[in-house]
Simulated assay, not measured.
Amino acid sequence: MQQTNGQPTTGQQPIGKLSGKIALVTGASSGIGAATALALAQEGAAVALVARRQDRLEQVAQTIQDAGGRAAVIVADIAQPEQARNAVAQTVSQLGGLDILVNNAGLMLLGPVAGADSDDWHRMMDLNVLALMHLTQAAVEVMKPKQSGHIVNISSVSGRGASPTSAGYSATKWAVGGFSEGLRQEVRLDRIRVTVIEPGVVATELTDHITHQDTKTTYESRISTMVPLEAEDIAAAVVYATTQPERVNVNQLLIRPLDQG
Rank of each mutant, 00 (worst) to 15 (best):
M1F: 13
Q2S: 09
Q2L: 10
Q2P: 09
Q2G: 00
Q3F: 02
Q3P: 00
T4N: 03
G6L: 07
P8F: 01
T9W: 10
T9K: 09
Q13H: 09
P14L: 04
I22S: 04
A23D: 07
S29A: 10
G33P: 04
T36H: 10
T36K: 05
A39E: 02
L40G: 02
E43C: 05
G44N: 11
G44I: 04
V47G: 05
A51M: 07
R53T: 07
R53S: 06
R56I: 10
E58W: 11
E58M: 14
T63Q: 15
Q65D: 02
G68A: 08
G69E: 08
G69W: 07
V73A: 06
V73F: 01
A76V: 00
D77W: 01
I78S: 11
A79I: 05
A79T: 13
Q80N: 13
R85L: 08
N86K: 00
Q90P: 00
Q94I: 02
G96I: 01
G96K: 02
G97Q: 02
L98C: 02
D99F: 04
L109Q: 12
L110C: 00
D117L: 13
S118N: 06
D119Q: 13
H122E: 14
R123W: 12
D126T: 03
V129W: 02
A131C: 05
A131E: 01
A131L: 07
M133C: 11
L135H: 06
Q137R: 06
Q137I: 00
A138L: 01
A138H: 01
A138Q: 06
A138P: 04
A139R: 00
A139M: 00
A139C: 08
A139S: 12
V140T: 10
K146M: 11
Q147R: 14
S148H: 15
S148M: 09
S148C: 10
G149F: 01
I151R: 05
V152M: 14
N153V: 04
N153Q: 12
G159F: 12
R160I: 13
A162Y: 13
S163N: 14
S166A: 15
G168S: 15
Y169V: 06
S170C: 08
T172P: 02
K173S: 03
V176E: 04
V176R: 05
G177F: 03
G178E: 11
F179D: 13
S180Y: 05
E181C: 08
R184F: 06
E186V: 02
E186N: 09
R188M: 11
R188E: 11
L189E: 15
T195V: 08
V196F: 12
I197H: 10
E198P: 10
G200T: 00
V202D: 00
E205T: 07
T207E: 12
T207A: 13
I210F: 13
T211H: 14
H212Q: 15
H212C: 14
T215C: 05
E220S: 05
S221D: 14
S224Q: 11
T225N: 12
M226A: 06
M226W: 03
E232W: 04
D233E: 11
A236L: 03
A237Y: 02
V238F: 14
V239K: 07
Y240T: 05
Y240S: 07
T242K: 08
E246A: 12
R247K: 15
N251D: 15
L253E: 09
L254G: 08
R256V: 14
P257K: 07
P257G: 08
Q260H: 10
